[in-house]
Computed example of a mutant assay.
Amino acid sequence: MAALSSKAIYGLAAMHVLAHAPRSRAMQVREISAMTQISHGYLEQLLSILRRNNLVSSIRGASGGYKLARLAHEIEVIEIIEALEGPFYKIEGNIGSSLILEYFWNDIEEKMRTLFSMKLSELDQAYQPHFYEI
């Protein structure tokens, strides 16, 4: 995977919205769609994949919808990405005859995994805008 596709980006957006829903309340697809600006049909596809990967659960009925399958502090961003994209950033094939290049690619993979191992619940705290007083 060289870059994240819209699948991963939109899937993370949907999971972020679900992380902010009250734990006892499931959100309907139309609500999530309105909050994320993701089309209803595409969002249903993403939520289906996330459900099959045990990241969200679905509830049937008039008050049904989707909610996180686990608490937001138990879900890593990389889990969401891998559920939607497949295995994360594996360098395969001939990576060069140099041991230095092998170390380089392994280091890059480790750094990317570390970056995306952030918990879903940590996104808001990590990226709060910093306002400075004048």
Rank of each mutant, 00 (worst) to 15 (best):
Q37K: 10
L123F: 08
M15S: 06
R60M: 12
I108K: 08
I78K: 11
Y66I: 04
M15L: 01
A69C: 06
G61N: 14
E76P: 00
S5K: 14
R113F: 11
K111A: 10
L115G: 07
R51C: 12
S117M: 11
H20M: 06
E74P: 08
A13G: 02
E133Q: 10
G86P: 05
I75A: 09
R30L: 09
H40G: 01
K7H: 12
I9Q: 06
L120V: 12
L12M: 15
A69S: 11
S48Q: 11
L84M: 13
A62W: 08
S121H: 07
A13W: 00
M118L: 14
Q128L: 14
I49Y: 12
E133C: 09
D107V: 12
S98C: 03
F116I: 03
E82S: 05
E44S: 13
M15Q: 02
A8Y: 11
A2F: 07
I49D: 02
E133Y: 04
G41K: 07
A62M: 13
D107E: 05
A8M: 13
E44D: 13
T36W: 01
E76V: 07
V29A: 12
P87H: 01
L46E: 09
M118G: 04
N106A: 05
L68R: 00
L115A: 15
G11A: 07
G61R: 12
I32M: 01
I75E: 01
A69Y: 09
D107Q: 00
L46Q: 08
A83D: 08
R70Q: 14
L55E: 14
R52N: 15
F104L: 15
Q37W: 05
Q125A: 10
H40A: 07
L12D: 08
H73W: 06
Y10Q: 02
I81W: 03
A126C: 04
I95V: 08
R70Y: 06
E85N: 05
R70P: 01
S117W: 05
S97H: 01
I49R: 15
E109P: 10
S48D: 04
G93A: 00
H20G: 01
N54W: 01
A8G: 12
I9G: 09
R25C: 03
A2H: 00
N54D: 14
L71V: 10
S58V: 01
V17T: 03
G96P: 09
D107W: 07
Y10S: 08
Y89D: 02
R113W: 05
A21P: 07
R23W: 13
Y127D: 09
